[in-house]
Design a binder for these strands. Structure first.
Length: 473
DNA sequence: TTTTGAGTTGTTCGA
DNA sequence: GTCGAACAACTCAAA
């Protein structure tokens, strides 16, 4: 038996199951140090907010609990990662650091710096197929989703039996100091999303198990924000509380076990969502400039208006368009937003208010507990029409049409905008059209209890078409 | 090199 | 109410 000590440096892999970095550390050493470093460079970033940090802290508590059940514990330090890792190496004579590779520009800089000083082994796991692997015949990266997804699906996928089990026992040196795991401020804890690996696996299992599983109606129900039709796994994937491989394996098995053709389509659509996540990891890997700049420089001359009052109205859910405002309140209150309303509210900021997509990107990153630099940036550039495989610039969501189509009875709207609770169905999408009598009857006076629209959509649409046209003409 | 088919998520207009 | 075409031509990927 070896007498070696290794560090398992935990970053976005807060799980024991199907964890290749942990597995490699246990293969190499008989004692390991499960180490999480509170990186001030990350925690103080303007792209981070308290809800995601609270979720992370909750996840650290759960991971510590799992480790203690196996005879170990989580070691938490705070500061510059290279500095803290050096200190732990000195204290413990650990001879190697294992970590799951992360691919954001910041993570690559950080890990590059660490590996100049210390023996750092990076292992796969953030995505099923590592970025850079899937390439066109000529060697270049894909920038269109569909051909990327075809290659992704043709590559070997993990089988159930290939998934690494959680280790039964973890031996951690006892003489190590650790910070107490911090707790988030109570008003920032996202109560709809209890963190941790067992909760993540419970959600996955519930989503895909049995012939009546939600995954089989996903193709339709995912578009209805008033219904819980999605897996709600994004925060768990964000922090690796469940592995990408285990999730993809479950999706493929659901496809194979689908009870009908329509059910199969539903599961296929969900698998595609997982592949979209990997597509955008690839895009950010190959084109790091997309953090901060348009993927397509053709749009660099779009003249944004960036009205700060309108930006604040959007952020606070006071645009006067109920579907947009419900979405923005859901984001700020719960730390999550339904995918359909992410598109609607993003389109409204960019195409109705002509506010730079980067301001929306940052606001989402501050509030989403699933906020991921690759996926969030990809989504915003898609909406703005500036990205890879983007929506054409003339594709402008109509917030009223979208609202009628996907929240026809106003269930979602009323959930997040209680002031519209008694507004009749026929006015719920355009409450400013309510008669004076109905306003009084429903206790919702426009301009007093709920704002009038801050822009008129039809005019805003024309304005955006002409601004984009003159920028690219 | 040239050609060909295809491309997440929409809206509006007019028949 | 429903349906197809136009939006505006563009870029990508592969043969």
């Amino acid at each position: 038996m070896s007498k070696r000590t290794a560090i398992w440096w935990i970053r976005r892999d807060l799980r024991l199951r199907e964890n290749q970095a942990l597995h490699a550390a246990l293969d190499h050493a008989n004692k390991i140090i499960p180490l999480f470093i509170l990186d001030s460079g990350l925690l103080d970033s303007p792209y981070v907010g308290p809800k995601r940090v609270s979720f992370l802290f909750d996840g650290l508590q759960k991971l510590d609990h799992e480790l203690r059940q196996r005879g170990g514990q989580l070691i938490v330090r705070s500061g510059n990662p290279a500095h803290e890792l050096s200190a732990v190496v000195q204290e413990t004579a650990a001879d190697v650091i294992f970590a799951e590779e992360d691919f954001s520009p910041y993570a690559r800089r950080r890990d590059g710096h660490v590996s100049q000083l210390l023996p750092l082994m990076l292992l796969p796991g953030l995505v099923v197929h590592p970025p850079g692997l899937i390439r066109k015949k000529n060697g270049g990266p894909y920038t269109v989703f569909t051909p990327f997804s075809k290659v992704w699906k043709a590559l070997p996928l993990p089988q159930q039996g290939d998934l690494l089990p959680a280790p039964g026992h973890i031996d951690v040196p006892h003489d190590l100091t650790s910070l107490t795991i911090p707790q988030g401020e109570s008003d920032t804890i996202p109560h709809n999303f209890p963190a941790g690996e067992s909760e993540a696996r419970r959600r996955l299992s519930q989503f895909v198990s049995g012939p009546e599983a939600a995954v089989y109606s996903y193709a339709q129900s995912r578009n209805t924000p008033g219904v819980n039709g999605t897996s709600q796994l994004s925060p768990y994937l964000r922090f690796g509380m469940i592995s990408a491989r285990e999730t993809a394996e479950a999706a493929v098995r659901a496809i194979d076990n689908a009870p009908s053709g329509a059910a199969r389509d539903g599961a296929e659509v969900w698998l595609n969502e997982l592949i979209w996540r990997e597509f955008y990891v690839n895009i950010l890997y190959h084109f790091p400039h997309v953090r901060g700049a348009n993927y397509n420089p053709k749009y660099d001359n779009v003249q944004w208006i960036n009205d700060s009052k309108q930006l604040r109205a959007w952020q606070e859910g006071r645009t006067g368009y109920p579907i947009v405002d419900a979405a923005m309140r859901q984001l700020v209150q719960s730390g999550w937003m339904h995918n359909r309303t992410r598109m609607i509210s993003a389109s409204f900021l960019v195409k109705d208010l002509l506010i730079d997509w980067r301001l929306g990107e940052q606001w989402f990153m501050q509030h989403l507990i699933d906020g991921d630099p690759a996926a969030n940036n990809g989504g915003w550039q898609w909406t703005a029409g500036t990205g890879t495989d983007a929506a054409p610039y003339f594709r402008i969501f109509n917030p009223i049409t979208q609202s009628k189509k996907f929240d026809s009875r106003g269930i979602y709207i009323r959930r997040w905008l209680p002031e519209l609770g008694n507004v009749p169905d026929k006015n719920i999408h355009e409450p400013w059209l309510m008669s004076r009598e109905d306003q009084i009857k429903s206790g919702c006076i426009i301009g007093r209890d709920y704002p009038a629209p801050i822009v008129e959509h039809a005019a805003a649409r024309e304005r955006t078409l002409s601004v984009y046209k003159s920028a690219t003409g």
